[in-house]
Design a protein around this nucleic acid. Sequence first.
DNA 1: TATTGTTATACTCTATAACTATA
DNA 2: TATAGTTATAGAGTATAACAATA
Lengths: 145, 145
Amino acid sequence: MSILEEHESSPGLLLALLGYDAMRRLRAAHDAHGLKPRQFQILGLLEHGGLSQRELNDRMGLDPSLVVALLNPLEADGFVSRERDPADRRRHTVSLTPAGATLLVAAGEAQRAVEDDLFAALDTQQREQLRALLLALNQPASDCA
Amino acid sequence: MSILEEHESSPGLLLALLGYDAMRRLRAAHDAHGLKPRQFQILGLLEHGGLSQRELNDRMGLDPSLVVALLNPLEADGFVSRERDPADRRRHTVSLTPAGATLLVAAGEAQRAVEDDLFAALDTQQREQLRALLLALNQPASDCA
DNA sequence: TATTGTTATACTCTATAACTATA
DNA sequence: TATAGTTATAGAGTATAACAATA
């Protein structure tokens, strides 16, 4: 059943509801691996080298306190390691462990499967269109603050 | 600042995060009128005549308990009225009051302003494209249950 | 003083289960 | 028994403020 009938859907609310559904499905997929969608995102961000928590905050658009709460279980389970930066002892460099890299691969397959299902109604070209439009939305013309 | 860099955004998570941001902006806009986005949606659904709560559940894709919680303040503030259906006394017919109709107009302008800002990065044609793609996502090809 | 990371608390939206009343 | 509506509780994701350690 559809979330909204066409005539009663404002574009903004439609986007909000579809986004909520997307997060719900991502969560269901990653639950099998003991991950939250945002934790999977962190593993992906660490794939090509360690980052400070500050860098994770910035790239994810999240408050530092959120990143701490996401990292703690990942570190406890051995998927991620935290080391103090010798050059600036305030910084904690977060890195992917071998176990974390393995988990990233397995959970990545689950995520791709979910996204295939999520966008099943669109063909390849339409998916590319949608992706391009969403990326445009994500980069506001200018920060006129 | 953008929520995600291009290379690190899965389409599904991108949709989820943009949807969250859309809901956040809608909430901010409707707060000025004492409404939640879902309550504004209810007012819109009642614009062309009364509905039972059951019909509201179905059209909004929400659990009945949610609709109750959304309606109670609306009724208390006089924007909506509930009357028992004489034909089936289990049914409560929900209708828009004159005050509710006035609120719908005012809040509708706020919502349009938010959506204009939300989709500011897109031209008219791109907005139509996006809307069509989102509507397609919202109507899964078939419920192969 | 400013920055990195941490802790604690609270808010929004939604889901589920159990209940009442009507049919 | 089944349906319309209600109540209460819980969960996920995020935001904010206050704090300790380091620069």
